[in-house]
Nucleic acid binder design. Structure first.
Length: 274
DNA sequence: GGGCTCCTGGAT
DNA sequence: ATCCAGGAGCCC
């Protein structure tokens, strides 16, 4: 579900609640969302303090005492938020972590289970909780020059390229469509057909969209919630994503939808000519 | 590269 | 009943 702005919002919310707190309870409801056995995970977490909460691309990282970190991937439907003590964890809650000095608990739930939780350095197969090793640089930390250099080496459709987390991480289906629209580039255009000015426009469009989305607390289409369990607001500012058949905010022509790389792709045929 | 697969739930 | 969904790994 979440892309960079949602992960950023969650990470910022968790930072305030969790940094400095000590883990004093671990409840594992589904072991197959983990890349490590419950028997092994529990002692590695218990009594450890949270040193920091980071975000890398779409992943959320709890840095623990003892040079270990716990990495959450939320997939399509994952949620990571704190629940007040009187509230019963909802269905599809797979992991509950309690902290000293925190009323209630941190819960990880994920109905579709495309997400997962991994302790970095462990290697059980069959978890998409995956590591952060295969990720390219985060889109918010890369410079315009480096972005242009990276893109310039590839010869693929822009949409597919921006979704490739191994090249640059953080963008997902919503924000690629929104960024390409703002840069007025057709999602099916090939990266090797762009000039430096196009790439610069794209870089700046991406940064602008992400910054606005972070300010709005992310996009809630169906089930995204932040660290408090609250929905985001940026969906009201989407210009093309989910707007098939509606008028383009620039030109009034109808927003179209096609498939690229198996993903629904929204664009304005007039403003983003092929 | 593209296609299939993992899984649940909501809309039509 | 069928299609679709903020993701991503594995298969040619």
């Amino acid at each position: 579900m979440p892309e960079l702005p949602e992960a950023e919002t969650i990470a910022e919310g968790l930072k305030v609640k969790l940094v400095g707190k000590r883990i004093n309870g671990v409840h594992i409801k589904r072991r197959d969302v983990l890349n490590i056995t419950p028997q092994r995970l529990r002692p590695l977490l218990l009594r450890r303090r949270i040193l920091s909460v980071e975000r890398m691309g779409k992943k959320i990282i709890l840095q623990l005492e003892g040079k270990r970190s716990l990495i959450f991937s939320l997939g399509m439907s994952g949620q990571l938020y704190t629940l007040p003590p009187e509230v019963k964890p909802p269905p599809h809650t797979h992991l509950i972590i309690e902290f000293s000095g925190l009323a209630g608990a941190l819960i990880f739930r994920d109905p579709r289970r495309f997400g997962g939780v991994s302790l970095e350095g462990e290697g059980l197969p069959k978890t998409s909780g995956s590591s952060i090793r295969n990720l390219g640089p985060d889109i918010l930390s890369i410079s315009e020059e480096d972005f242009i250099a990276l893109m310039g080496r590839k010869k693929r459709q822009l949409k597919a390229l921006l979704l490739d987390q191994g090249l640059i991480c953080g963008l997902g289906n919503i924000y690629t469509d929104e960024s390409l629209f703002r840069a007025r580039l057709h999602p099916g255009r090939r990266s090797d057909g762009l000039n430096v000015d196009d790439m610069s426009k794209l870089y700046n469009a991406i940064r602008q969209v992400l910054a606005e989305a972070i300010s709005a607390g992310g996009s809630s289409i169906s089930d995204y919630v932040d660290a408090q369990g609250e929905a985001g607001n940026f969906q009201v500012n989407h210009r093309v994503y989910g707007k098939e058949g509606e008028p383009c905010p620039n030109c009034g022509n109808k927003i179209a939808k096609m498939k690229i790389g198996g993903r629904g792709t929204h664009y304005c045929p007039h403003c983003q000519p092929g």
